[in-house]
Amino acid sequence: MNKKCFGIVAILLLVIAGGIYKFIFQGSVSINADGRTAIHLNPEERDLVLAEMRAFLTSVQKITEGISENDMQLVADYARKAGRAAQAEVPGTLMAKLPIQFKQSGFDTHSGFDQLAMDAEDLGDSNDALSQLSLLMQNCVSCHAAYRIDSSGK
């Protein structure tokens, strides 16, 4: 009886480990013909991710405007809009479909915007803000080079 229970527990642990790998690390992905990782989302999830990217782009434009006008409050306001607070609306079902590297890059980018907001308010240095924005844009460029968002049609 002990061997039977041990076997069942071992199988269950393997299933759990597989689920953790699939939903935490791998996500719902495949390699696309262009070499990028295709993330497969349903149309609503895809729309949510693309809306977040457009919000990033709006923030980047307003931050750039704030830097050019030395309006560090504008920089802080729009950096904060792209910060960690923007992640609150992402459902767990969507997070499970995203590969770990994509999630890490997203978390880093949101945190970077929060740091930019704090530094813009505390330091008021447009050159520092521009440097931070340049680093954040590297995240965007590398993400777009590595991933594409495909609709699974479900």
Results as ranks from 00 to 15, higher is better:
85 A>C: 03
41 L>Y: 00
117 A>D: 00
103 K>F: 09
124 G>V: 05
135 L>R: 07
138 Q>D: 08
136 L>F: 03
148 R>Y: 04
127 N>L: 11
58 T>P: 00
145 A>D: 05
150 D>V: 14
4 K>N: 06
149 I>C: 00
73 Q>V: 15
83 G>T: 01
5 C>M: 13
41 L>M: 10
98 L>H: 04
75 V>A: 04
133 L>Q: 00
146 A>Y: 02
143 C>M: 06
34 D>Q: 06
108 D>Y: 02
88 A>L: 14
61 Q>T: 13
141 V>F: 01
130 L>V: 00
53 M>T: 12
11 I>T: 13
145 A>K: 09
71 D>H: 04
50 L>P: 11
51 A>E: 04
149 I>T: 04
31 I>N: 10
140 C>Y: 00
88 A>N: 07
137 M>D: 02
124 G>M: 03
103 K>Q: 11
79 A>F: 02
91 P>C: 08
90 V>F: 09
15 V>I: 15
31 I>K: 09
63 I>L: 02
103 K>G: 04
108 D>E: 07
46 R>P: 06
121 E>T: 15
33 A>F: 12
78 Y>H: 12
90 V>K: 01
10 A>I: 15
96 A>H: 06
38 A>G: 05
49 V>D: 00
144 H>E: 00
80 R>C: 05
33 A>L: 11
100 I>D: 00
13 L>W: 03
141 V>I: 13
4 K>M: 12
31 I>P: 01
34 D>F: 09
77 D>R: 11
117 A>K: 08
120 A>R: 05
149 I>W: 07
131 S>M: 11
81 K>Y: 02
1 M>H: 09
31 I>S: 10
17 A>V: 13
59 S>V: 08
37 T>N: 03
45 E>T: 04
49 V>R: 02
114 D>V: 07
62 K>V: 12
57 L>H: 06
70 N>A: 10
65 E>Y: 11
81 K>N: 06
94 L>E: 01
143 C>H: 07
55 A>T: 10
152 S>A: 10
80 R>K: 15
26 Q>S: 14
103 K>V: 13
104 Q>I: 15
4 K>W: 12
135 L>F: 00
44 E>K: 15
92 G>L: 14
135 L>K: 09
34 D>S: 09
134 S>Y: 05
102 F>H: 08
128 D>V: 15
96 A>N: 08
2 N>D: 11
23 F>M: 06
53 M>C: 06
12 L>W: 02
86 A>M: 11
49 V>F: 08
32 N>R: 13
84 R>Q: 09
133 L>R: 01
94 L>M: 14
154 K>Q: 10
147 Y>H: 02
30 S>I: 14
103 K>C: 07
98 L>T: 04
85 A>K: 13
85 A>S: 09
140 C>W: 01
84 R>E: 06
153 G>R: 08
96 A>W: 01
10 A>Y: 08
102 F>Q: 03
16 I>A: 12
116 L>A: 03
109 T>A: 05
123 L>V: 10
1 M>T: 14
28 S>A: 15
87 Q>V: 13
147 Y>T: 06
15 V>N: 04
97 K>V: 14
148 R>H: 04
44 E>H: 12
70 N>W: 05
150 D>Y: 07
57 L>V: 13
121 E>N: 10
151 S>P: 07
144 H>K: 05
2 N>E: 12
80 R>G: 02
141 V>A: 01
61 Q>M: 07
21 Y>M: 11
151 S>V: 11
127 N>P: 02
